[in-house]
Every structure is written in C-alpha cells, then in structure tokens.
Nucleic acid binder design. Sequence first.
DNA 1: ATGGTGGCCAAGCCA
Length: 261
Amino acid sequence: MFTLATWNINSVRLREGLVARLLREEAPDILCLQECKSPVEKIPLTMFQELGYNWIVARGQKGYNGVAILSRLPIEDAGDRDYAKLGHARHVAARLENGVTIHNMYVPAGGDIPDRELNVKFGQKLDFVSEMRDVFHADNPQRSILVGDLNIAPREDDVWSHKQLLKIVSHTPIEVEHLLAAQDAGKWVDVTRQDIPEGLLYSWWSYRSPDWNAADKGRRLDHIWATPDISNAAHGSRILRDVRGWQQPSDHAPVLATFDL
DNA sequence: ATGGTGGCCAAGCCA
C-alpha cells in the first residue's frame, strides 16, 4: 500500500520549506511535483533526504517548467517524452518495485486566447494533449498511474462557474474534448472523481484574487488517473485546500490518493 | 472590458 501526492509547487527552491511541511504532515510515500522551475542539480535534496525521501527522478530546466518524483520507496527512472517537441521539462516517469509506472505531467497552460490561429501557445497545448492520446493509444498502458497539472478542468463541477468559464482557457469545450480523448485512449480512470463523485472540487485558485478563500473561484486542474487494472485499488482521495492558505503558498493545492497494491 | 498577483531573474516572459 502506498499514498501518492501531486502538487504544482511553483518553484521548488522558493518553497522548499512548504514541501518539507507537506512531507512531515502527510507523509505520502511518493510526491510528484510540477513547475519546479529549477535545473535538477539545484533541487534542494538534503532536507527531503533527511525526511526519508531518498529517491528522486526528475527533469528540469532553468526558470521554467520542471517535474520531479520524490519517493521514500525505491523507484527507477522510466524515461521521459518531449510532448509536442517543445523542448520543455514537462514529463518524467518512474517505476516502483511492484511494477507500477508513475507518469508525472505538466501540460502547458496555453495562454489567454483559446484560438490556435491567434495564440501559438493554445495550439501547443492542444498538440501536447493530442500526442498524449496517440501515445496512450499505441502503448495501451498497464499498472500505471498518471498524475500532474493537466491545466484542464473537464467537468462542470470542476470549476466555480461552468457558464462563465466556457471561453476561458482550461475549461473550453475543445480542451475538454482533447483531454477526454487522451483519457479514453489509455482507458484511464479519474481516481479523484471515482472517490469524490459529487460536488464542486478545485485544486487551484488564482493569485490574482484578493481573497481566494472567500471568493472561491477555483478550478480542478490537478489530477490523479490510474489504469483499470489497478484503479479499484485506489481510495481515500483528498485535495488539501488548507495548503493553499499556507504562508507564501503555491497557487495549487496538493491532490492525494492511496493505492492498496 | 479590464486588471488583478506571483516567480524567474533583473526586462520581459510565463503562469
């Protein structure tokens, strides 16, 4: 049995202390981070190792993007892929000794205008997710977990106002369509919604809102998926909303799930 | 309709 957490940390060096606090208070066996904004060699490993997280599989770059998998269970590097040929550090995979593969992903945000003719970044986002679909279709993943900041809130109850966000990047029909096609191609089960099927659920609140907690204009951008052969082992999903209120927080909250495997 | 905040690193890009 292991507990897995995913968290867009928005700079792992600035928020080293917040990562340590999460590891102390929640003690997930595995923590997948996105937006580390650091070369791998500059990720602050000492404190994580002192807390028992002796294994790391990561891809980094200076200033932007970056994904890391910290683990207190042995993991081996299972490679990466440069989706949409962006040259960004947005994917890395690791394998546990029980054969379970973990994919840690950071899908591009996609800019502000939801039109690929007017906004190159939106096209790159759609291409990234289309390539996910193609890879999953070709690979037919087994005993796999996919986590990360997918930067798309697929359901009406994954956003504070479905109607008001229909033309806002992260909740447009074309993005949702692309994400569901990728999910379907790998037969991925949305573990968070398997456990919490009803009600509004968010993992991100903008920094630009003066009182994020009272306004509560959130979106569920961070996800945990599993292939059907292991999805029934998943339970206990949580989104740690309180973490969004910690001192100098990330704009994302951690998402957790436990697997009896 | 607009601008609001935050991190990279020291101007403008990205989210």
